[in-house]
């Protein structure tokens, strides 16, 4: 299989098939990111299309040898955040609802009070959908980190590059995201407490 860098070079030499290969290879990942972020198929498709359109325009300035995937996801993440900003401008509904306080994360000590999830619930459909609901209530910047790490399998370094944040902030976001999710799940699953 051709590497991304070879495909980009081929594309810049005029090989149309090369760009097709790049699109086909990365559409699922970008769509997944956009869908998990927007929870809307149409929006996710639009964002995916827009991402590749921008990539097409920018490829000639892509630095050969640098990793393509983080660069691609950086463009997609940026579009997701722009989309979110526009949503907020057009609607008064905050995505970050239920009085989430992003800047006041749970202190580590409070985690001790959170009981572990019962193993038997892990396999139920109920938890599955509860997890997705809880995920939607995560603050946006945590959600992006979680998607990139857990569903796209990007490393901490790559996520730091994609979101243009320090490596330690990636760690912090992931830790706080888990704490938030746990809190939300506990609110929904009385049995957990």
């Amino acid at each position: 299989m051709e590497t991304e860098n070879n495909l980009i070079q081929a594309h810049l030499r005029g090989d149309r098939q090369a760009f097709r290969e790049l699109v086909e290879r990365h559409t699922p990942g970008i769509y997944n990111l956009a869908y998990q972020y927007t929870r809307d198929q149409m929006e996710a498709e639009n964002l995916t299309q827009e991402t590749f359109l921008r990539v097409y325009r920018a490829l000639s300035r892509f630095r050969p040898g640098s990793p393509f995937r983080p660069w691609l996801f950086a463009i997609a993440a940026n579009l997701c955040r722009n989309w979110s900003r526009q949503q907020k401008e057009t609607s008064f509904t905050e995505l970050n609802s239920q009085g989430e306080t992003d800047d006041q994360p749970l202190p580590m000590e409070q985690v001790q009070d959170l009981l572990p999830l019962p193993g038997e619930i892990l396999e139920t459909e109920e938890l599955y959908s509860a997890l997705q609901d809880a995920f939607e209530h995560l603050p946006e910047h945590y959600r992006l980190v979680v998607i990139l790490y857990y569903t796209e399998g990007l490393s901490y370094d790559d996520i730091a590059q994609v979101l243009n944040i320090p490596l330690n902030t990636v760690r912090t976001h992931l830790r706080r995201a888990k704490q938030h999710l746990r809190q939300i799940l506990e609110q929904e699953f009385g049995a957990l407490s």
Binding site: F19, A44, E45, T48, Q49, L53, V146, K178, L181
Partner: peptide, 28 residues
């Protein structure tokens, strides 16, 4: 608790696009 949440997050479903999306992107 962390470990369980980690396992749980791995269950987050990966959504896949329509098969024709890549072609639509190329057309656009």
């Amino acid at each position: 608790a962390h470990w369980q949440m980690d396992r749980l997050l791995m269950l987050l479903p990966r959504t896949f696009p329509r098969e024709t999306l890549a072609n639509e992107i190329l057309v656009r």
